[in-house]
Write a protein that binds this DNA or RNA. Sequence first.
DNA 1: TGAAATGTTGGGGCG
DNA 2: ACGCCCCAACATTTC
Length: 478
Amino acid sequence: MTAPAIWWLRNDFRLTDNSALHAAAATGAPVLAVFVLPGGEADDQAGGAASRWWLHHSLAALSDRLAKWSVPLLLRRGPAADVLADIARDTGTATVFAARRYEPWARRQQRAVRARLAEEAPLQLYGGRLMFEPAALRNRSDQPFQVFTPFWKACLAAGDPGPVRESLPDLRGFSGRPGSERLEDWLLLPRQPDWAGGLREHWQPGETGALERWQEFLAEGLDGYHLNRDRPDLAGTSRLSPHLHFGEIGIRWLWAAVCAAERDGLCSAAAADCFRRELGWREFSAHLLYHWPELTTQPLRREFMEFPWREDADALAAWQRGATGYPLVDAGMRELWHTGWMHNRVRMVAASFLVKHLLLHWQHGEAWFRDTLVDADLANNVAGWQWVAGSGADAAPFFRIFNPVLQGQKFDPDGHYVRRWVPELARLPDRWLQEPWSAPAEVLAAAGVLLGRDYPAPLVEHPAARERALAAFETLRR
DNA sequence: TGAAATGTTGGGGCG
DNA sequence: ACGCCCCAACATTTC
């Protein structure tokens, strides 16, 4: 039997624009795909329950696709170095091909794999998860960027992110069948209760679903992106984040597709620039975590070590279940719980509320998002939360405190978003929808709302919470 | 990728 | 006619 080339899957669950897979196929050898379930350190920082739901379906979709070429997808657990070394030995594999990853745990993992495989079946790593190699981008002082705008200028100046392989790889199947675990046995899906109904309604994990999502965005969203992206009541964003996290769509492919759309007149330059810039934030976050691996647990601005965070389990629980009494925040938290996703603008407002209005540590929020988001991504999540908290790179100044009422009036002007996710307020007129506690009693009664019974009274009063947050921040300056 | 407080301006009402 | 006051609208600064 011909020895296979191993394609070690590392959240690059796609066949197109996949350098590692193409390289494996180009050897001419049969291809054997291997996925190793994260355990230990990796599992601690991997996504949580929503992410596992996605992983299950994405692996199933990929396995189905690969079956057309008789390429087996092996599922294994254990330290990746041990698993890959075993399979390489058993099959006589010459080379292991994989996508490079940049999280601290993933870099340790690939070093361990490389060391273990050594000369017998060397590990070949390929780019493509990011547009640029973090080690290659530095400012004039030869330091990694800490501010987004100069970072992004440097990216744009560096030119096209790289080659895109449009065609499918020429795959040869592998007839050997080293033992694989069964996906079902990994228990990645929720049971008792099955809370994944909302996820199933909203998402189609896998490369096909990713491509369809892109096509829909290209047809309906991209051209107005710069105008609508902050409006949670409109479907103005791409919703590609989970597909990007699992590598079901390649970032370089996506970049090229946006540029092509712009060239073909399918979207304005302003829209394309705006969307590419958001891809830039994803890139920026990954680069930050690469250069500052302690970002996951330590504030980048060290003075925040002394920040007087509160501990308040009841407030945290109210935030988590969307019962803060602030309609926009609650709508966002409920959208997250139901669909595994939250609109970016609302993420900022909800995160700001936890950190500033409630003075709870950003790590509580980060952990919750990591558990509930289908797009949970270590770098994006951690960098985003530190940005909101004011302790991160190029962070929002701490004194920028969102007013959830004003944000709601500005970005959900007709109240469609709040009414969808907080239906108990649906009959309130627009004037009071974002601040039901201010509504006259007869208006509340007419809308069938009794605060404290049908919808919570506000957990904190905005002006007082704002003053409290500013006072807490002031303690850092001394 | 804010909001609130404070400052400035200009038009209209009115003595 | 004129100046004064009021205050909305806008600008600036402060947090």
